[in-house]
């Protein structure tokens, strides 16, 4: 792969010394780890016999919070992402609108969802409302960027043809732009529903509601059987979402 033997050996040596250094600096509490083997066995056991019943009302509430957060945040996100995406397309928007919209997109993508969630929890208090806001921001960042990139790649001939008929700006958007980008937008939205649900199982860890909070509590109490039940529910819903998203994509292709 690398021509000069000197460079090749230097690279190998560099990688080897990095690995040695990296491994040397891992602090491992071996007694804790050896206890972990027992815990891992218990965890695995409880996956095979998950306990849905003893914390059922918590699990139920967490699941409902996650699902409602996912739905409302996706709807709100799409409603905001469409105008922002239009504004962030170089071939449609004047330069200053383009600048503002691309700025909004970059800002909403800069930090991980969970960090955004920390701030919303600090501002709006614990609970699913903070989670809703987090997922909305994340949906805007995801959808408006991809929508804008899609619009920038549409066939300009169709736009030209509609403009040549004397159509107004919004008619051009409706006929020439929307007809080209909507099928993929629908597919991406379905995909984002799936991602949002997965994220909703995580942002609960910092207090933004949802099933993640329930899972966090269960693990803190070492109730592995309840945690197993929650994980199975998450995996089940994620798979259902994935299946649904696939079906929707096929329908609108």
């Amino acid at each position: 792969m690398i021509e000069s033997p000197l460079v090749r050996w230097a690279a190998l040596l560099g990688i080897a010394s990095y690995l040695a250094l990296a491994f040397a600096t891992i602090d491992v509490n071996w007694t804790r780890v050896s206890e972990g083997v027992v815990r891992a066995a218990r965890l695995f056991e409880s996956f095979i016999s998950p306990n849905f019943t003893s914390r059922w009302s918590d699990i139920q509430q967490g699941t409902i919070e996650s699902l409602t957060m996912t739905v409302t945040a996706t709807v709100a996100g799409v409603l905001l992402a469409v105008p922002i995406g239009l504004g962030a397309a170089r071939n449609l928007a004047p330069w200053w609108v383009y600048g503002i919209c691309r700025g909004v997109i970059a800002a909403s993508r800069a930090l991980q969802d969970i960090i955004v969630a920390i701030f919303f929890v600090a501002m709006f208090g614990f609970g699913p409302f903070a989670g809703f806001l987090t997922l909305t921001v994340s949906t805007i960042g995801f959808l408006s960027k991809l929508l804008a990139d899609d619009i920038e790649e549409i066939d300009p001939g169709q736009v030209e043809a509609i403009r040549a008929t004397g159509a107004g700006f919004w008619q051009v958007i409706d006929f020439a732009v929307a007809s080209q980008v909507i099928p993929r937008l629908i597919g991406l939205t379905a995909y984002k529903v799936d991602i949002n649900f997965r994220e909703s199982s995580v942002i609960g860890i910092v207090g933004a509601g949802g099933i993640g909070a329930t899972l966090n509590t269960a693990l803190d109490r070492y109730e592995f059987d309840t945690a197993g039940a929650i994980l199975l529910i998450i995996i089940g819903i994620v798979m259902a979402c994935e299946y649904g998203a696939g079906a929707i994509r096929k329908r609108f292709a």
Binding site: R32, R39, L43, I114, R198, L219, Y222, F224, L231, I234
Partner: peptide, 15 residues
């Protein structure tokens, strides 16, 4: 299907 943070939660509980 499982987010890295959820894997993290599980592994911190174990290890």
């Amino acid at each position: 299907s499982v987010n890295a943070l959820v894997w993290g939660l599980l592994l911190v509980a174990v290890l």
